[in-house]
Design a protein around this nucleic acid. Sequence first.
DNA 1: GGCAAATAACTGATATATCAGATATCAGAA
DNA 2: TTCTGATATCTGATATATCAGTTATTTGCC
Lengths: 226, 226
Amino acid sequence: MKTAKGGLVLKSLKEQVYDYLRQQFQKHRLQPGETINMEATAGKLGVSKTPLRDALIQLEMEGFVTISPRRGIFVNPLPLAEIREFYQVIGALESSALIESFPSLGPAGIRKMDGLNRRMQKAIDAGDFDLFYEKNLLFHDAFVAACGNGNLTRIVGNLKKRLYDFPRKRQWIKEWEQSSIREHQEIVDFLAAGDPQSAAIFLRDVHWSFKVQEKFIRKYYGDAKA
Amino acid sequence: MKTAKGGLVLKSLKEQVYDYLRQQFQKHRLQPGETINMEATAGKLGVSKTPLRDALIQLEMEGFVTISPRRGIFVNPLPLAEIREFYQVIGALESSALIESFPSLGPAGIRKMDGLNRRMQKAIDAGDFDLFYEKNLLFHDAFVAACGNGNLTRIVGNLKKRLYDFPRKRQWIKEWEQSSIREHQEIVDFLAAGDPQSAAIFLRDVHWSFKVQEKFIRKYYGDAKA
DNA sequence: GGCAAATAACTGATATATCAGATATCAGAA
DNA sequence: TTCTGATATCTGATATATCAGTTATTTGCC
């Protein structure tokens, strides 16, 4: 329950619990296979089990946990096979979004993407992974948002939540980040040349190709077992 | 909670409530904008508000309802704009699934799709819309399932739930059904000719093109307002 | 010692009571 | 008559108690 009172936005307990748990994922405090104990967690958060359960149902729908009735609530692993699936889905959807957004992106939008990619390079040069990550998200968001398809944005966003919040072996791989920047530049170049189809195909078949990115993925997530 | 006891599969109350509500949608007993009253519904179903709320949280995540805190729970409309969004997403994902599944489909899989399409024609000839609908789902499921991407299947499936459970103006439009069958045949022909790329493009840009299908969509769903 | 049945403990699922925000209605003042 | 504040009602959100399936441990028999 979000209420605005004099500029304050009040969140329901359910939402606050959800945010807390999401943070736990982002901080890698919840590991695959781990159980979330209702009594203990509710006690720790100082709320009843009810909003906790509400939040967990949402997290289950989003793929983060599995509620195994009367047995326990388990943090889902993220096996390579599933990462492969995510890559396929995101590739197909972002590719579609890029084509759809091209008319409304225009030169200004392409310049914006180009600028974001350059800032990604600067972040790498400065060793600032958080900034790199932020600009990377914004690069993709530029055309996904411009596509104007809220459902597509939601679906892609949720898969990315799973990809990025999952505990990983390494914080970053410079080679991968450099490679991403080169790929982004390729996409921008296609767009600037007025060829969204080639940009979309490159985005789908290279940038979001599990096969192409596999060597980095394995380093980054480790060879996670299901 | 699904438990198997001596072959019986027992469902939790939450699941049963969810199934009931889904049925209500399928039977068009729940209309856009309508409210679902917790006390009344729980009383009617003979359960407490808890499993009802659990089910509603899931339905909200799936887009069927909006839980407006402390105000009410509203059945979501399905405006044409959203249908358009769904068409784009499904088109992109099914297209991707078709390419991915082609190697494992093989001649047998293509024949199966062909057979399903012929049965769709027979259903039309016999005026049996339920059978048509069933074979239509199976036609698409054939390559979506063969793609082996559970997440893609789940995402597409959920969007189709929304499309097919939504109340509509007309039960069926023979012209659209005939058109679908022709389009399916086109896809099958491309596949049989060993050209999944053309099949995928046709699937995405014709079969799942909102623009191409718009005249039927408007007749079928009515000109629903948001 | 091994196995099966009984019992205890654990844990999530559900029911009920209470709370709390939103909305409608009423009463009083201008 | 209109407006504002107070009160009542409605409805979902949350807390607490209890239930019920699952798992672990104990007990008794062979």
